[in-house]
Design a protein around this nucleic acid. Structure first.
Lengths: 186, 186
DNA sequence: GAACTGGATAAACAAGCGTTCATACAGTAG
DNA sequence: CTACTGTATGAACGCTTGTTTATCCAGTTC
């Protein structure tokens, strides 16, 4: 409940610009009540950001396992990313734009998850390059193309919202096509 | 000088998390001195954000005029975007991630510039679709493909920094290729 | 040299921040 | 009934925030 209110406010105003009193008031509580559930404002942000990243990572792993060749794997990843950033756009956007406010170990943990997520895409692109399924636009380009694909997928959360005429499923189809084209899928 | 220090701090910490005293201290001044140059913290942010947007817009218009067919125009836009977001990554990133903190008329002005920038890309994609240079992945997809291309270009500023082995010029070439592939350039 | 200007200062301001704490109260267990 | 746990409260804490103000000083202009 508190976490949900926090996501909503962080999404609209940014985490730094959002007040403990705003968050608790949105749940009909007073400021002090928050500290029965979270040790600090940063821990609350950390919880929200980590949950979003872990959900995404788990979904990617799940879909990756049940996909076959590199094009199928890339399509699966893109499908998951679009789904996550379209359907849970508030928490996803908070996760992506506010994780930098974390400090120390918490920040390091999130950065590590993000590196892992990026590597999964890079690995698929490299495998596809070797197998001849993909033709990337340069030498050792997998990391760059991975970043480009992820940037375009992640930032859906900044502008998309479900409704006429474009559904999440539509968006998934379009973005899979775009990603495969970027990879030079044959 | 003050604006440059502000860009640097906004880039590293976010605008809300950055203090007037931090900005002025970075220039060897005290807090009050800022108000000889800017009416408020928001006006300082506004100046920084607007300058970045206007520079980008001017560069896009200039290059667009001297490019021929739709593929050349799309390539020109991507070149400008990559250049701007790679070489001036701090101010670009601040412009893109902090403009939402502006309020009222100032915010409306920036939102309008951003819409115009997006429309320039959409128009090129539509023209290329009509002329047969492009084949977009669906019906009336120009707006979506435009967003995807811009998202991937803009967010270079979050991870790129000039150096070995990848130069800005390299990145421009790669991203032009990616964008043309996304548009289904023949 | 008098008048004016632009820009700097230290000090203060009210408001708001995240956080703590003593207290209270409802529900559950023994 | 008693003890305990979980959670809420309101008031306070010390600190920081953006901003204002009276004052000062170095140049420039006449």
């Amino acid at each position: 409940m508190l976490a949900a209110a926090a996501v909503d406010l962080f999404y609209r105003q940014g985490a730094t610009a959002t007040t403990i009193r705003e968050i608790t008031q949105a749940c009909g509580l007073t400021a002090g009540a928050l500290y029965n559930h979270f040790a600090s404002k940063e821990e609350l942000l950390y919880t929200v950001v980590r949950d979003s990243h872990l959900n995404l990572d788990a979904a990617v792993v799940r879909e990756l396992d049940s996909a076959g060749d590199p094009p199928a794997k890339l399509a699966a990843i893109v499908r998951v990313y679009v789904e996550q950033h379209a359907r849970h756009r508030k928490s996803s956007r908070v996760a992506n734009s506010e994780y930098g406010q974390l400090t120390g170990e918490r920040r390091a943990e999130i950065v590590e998850i993000r590196r892992r997520l990026r590597d999964r895409v890079t690995d698929v692109l490299r495998a596809g390059e070797r197998s001849g399924h993909f033709q990337l636009p340069g030498r050792d380009e997998a990391t760059i193309v991975a970043r480009a694909i992820l940037d375009m997928c992640v930032h859906i959360s900044a502008w998309f919202h479900e409704g006429q005429p474009l559904t999440t499923a539509d968006l998934q189809d379009r973005y899979v096509t775009l990603a495969l084209r970027m990879a030079g899928s044959t």
